[in-house]
Design a protein around this nucleic acid. Structure first.
Length: 476
RNA sequence: CGGGGCGUAGUUCAUCGGUAGAACGCUCGGUUUGGGACCGAGAAGUAGAGGGUUCAAUUCCCUCCACCCCGACCA
């Protein structure tokens, strides 16, 4: 295991202290001057960039095109869909003055773009031939959160929001499902973060949606993180924004819609899940630097050989950096890159150079091996793949070990107090029951897993008939 | 928005009615480098903002602001 760090609280002792410190020490992010805002520093932004590059490709391959809609949304737009405005009202940033004059209509700084996009869609859709509309945008949104947390909950965050309109509900449902599938794949394969895919309860679903699919991952202290969502909007928005078209039979119909989003919160989940007492552990596929090469001293021969190795790795598509700062000792540099979570570290000293060897160290396990220079490329390539899959396996084990089931409310309460994690239980789907459970245990309904089978049972809280085992957890 | 905390050098903090100090970091020079090196020299502050008390306020009082933590709300 890697060495403990000065200045860094232990993750195992105080998760939130560790998290706040490590994010800043590793130069991922900093606090912005205005409340709840954050600065994405280059090292942190690069993680997001690597993700967006991969996800953008998937989105385009599915036939969804990128576009950009305005940041300012007329207040009246938001008010059109009742549930939507009620859901977002408490967290809106509103512009009331422009150019020194009071505005006749207030402008909302977008918290999400359904309304402004669908107003445009209504102008563009007249015939079944105009459908589907498949648009995505990468942008920023503002939600005036009362309590913020770097990456996980900030007043302004970055995300992609996909917004589609279809001729049939079936098509829309397929789209909704595709988006969640793409998210789940991204979380597993890039973030090495397994999670539960499922449907949100009526209370927890998106404001204005018919149904919401969510990806829920589990953080180290046993709390759930809603990682991204995909919504079936039905005709809720198309009716108020009048997205109407004539079908093949000449009948006037409202479009069926979906929206789906994946935000920078995901990066917070990534950091929190994989890190350890020595700092970050970034999965190779999202690591801005996958391999760091450290010449032990600034001896010219060592530096030259390091550069040569770096070039070799770069040519193989590995993101690599040589850190040959001569004012920092080898020990200091090792600690620095461990804190920053670089998956593979290579040390090259005089002894090794003479023997034609080098030391390769895994960040996740601390495991060291001495290999010959000739094996550099294959070893690094293989390690990056191994680390990626080991991290996923480790998280899967954690998820399995922390997913429990109960039919007893006392036990339910006890688990939420002590072990936390995901807890499966029958629930009658009554909102009042949901509220009581939350009040008494702080746990919320996270989702009904998509692979859940219908069965018969009694609600864990009220004992009434229940048809499904839902997943409960404390949430971020 | 409720409860708590904090605001002094880049950072973490000390000082305490008499006008500012340490450590780390930073700059320069030198010696170093196999798990956070060392020596020497140096730069760095309108003490969050405003008001009050006082001969005198970073210090005491009030107001505001900001940030952090805990709750309610949320990607």
């Amino acid at each position: 295991m890697a060495f403990e760090k000065k200045q860094l609280p232990k993750k195992s002792e105080s998760l939130s202290d560790w998290y706040n410190r490590v994010v800043q020490l590793a130069e991922l992010a900093d606090y912005g001057p205005a409340k709840g805002t954050m600065i994405f520093r280059p090292y942190g932004y690069r993680i997001w960039e690597l993700l967006t590059e991969a996800m953008d490709k998937e989105i385009k391959e599915a036939g969804v095109e990128n576009a950009y809609f305005p940041l300012f949304i007329p207040e009246s737009f938001l008010k059109k869909e009742k549930q939507h405005v009620e859901g977002f009202a408490p967290e809106l940033a509103v512009v009331t003055i422009g150019g020194g004059e009071e505005l006749t209509e207030k402008l909302i700084v977008r918290p999400t773009s359904e309304t402004i996009m669908y107003d445009a869609y209504s102008k563009w859709v007249h015939s079944w031939r105009d459908l589907p509309i498949l648009i995505n945008q990468w942008n920023n949104v503002v939600r005036w959160e009362k309590r913020t947390y770097l990456f996980l909950r900030t007043s302004e965050f970055l995300w992609q929001e996909g917004h589609t309109a279809h001729a049939t509900h079936k098509e829309a449902l397929e789209m909704q499902s595709w988006a969640m599938g793409m998210y789940a794949k991204t979380y597993r394969e890039l973030f090495a973060l397994p999670g539960l895919v499922g449907r949100k309860s009526e209370k927890e679903k998106f404001a204005g949606a018919v149904a919401t699919l969510t990806y829920e991952s589990l953080m180290p202290e046993g709390k759930a993180l809603q990682s991204c969502t995909s919504h079936d909007l039905g005709q809720n928005f198309s009716k108020v924004f009048e997205i109407k078209f004539q079908d093949k039979e000449g009948k006037l119909q409202y479009a069926w819609q979906t929206s789906w989003g994946f935000s920078t919160r995901s990066v917070g989940g990534l950091l929190m899940a994989h890190g350890d007492d020595a700092g970050l552990v970034i999965p190779p596929r999202l690591a801005p630097i996958q391999t760091v090469i450290l010449p032990v001293t600034s001896d010219t021969k060592l530096v030259e050989k390091s550069r040569e190795m770096a070039k070799q790795l770069t040519d193989m598509g590995v993101r690599v950096k040589v850190d040959d700062r001569e004012d920092e000792s080898i020990g200091f540099r090792i600690n620095k890159w461990e804190l920053k979570g670089v998956p593979v570290r290579i040390e090259l000293g005089k002894r090794e150079l003479e023997n034609g060897e080098l030391t390769v160290v895994r960040r996740d396990t601390g495991e060291k091996q001495v290999i010959s220079h000739a094996k550099l490329g294959p070893t690094v390539k293989e390690l990056l793949v191994t680390i990626q899959s080991d991290l996923l396996a480790k998280q899967e084990k954690f998820l399995t070990e922390n997913t429990r089931e109960t039919g007893n409310y006392e036990e339910f309460k006890k688990i939420m107090e002590e072990k936390r994690g995901f807890l499966k239980a029958y629930w009658c789907e009554d909102a009042e029951c949901e509220a009581k459970i939350k009040e008494e245990t702080k746990a919320t309904v996270r989702c009904l897993p998509e692979d859940a089978k219908f069965s018969q049972g009694k609600c864990v809280k009220c004992g009434k008939e229940a048809r499904n085992k839902w997943v409960f957890a404390l949430a971020y």
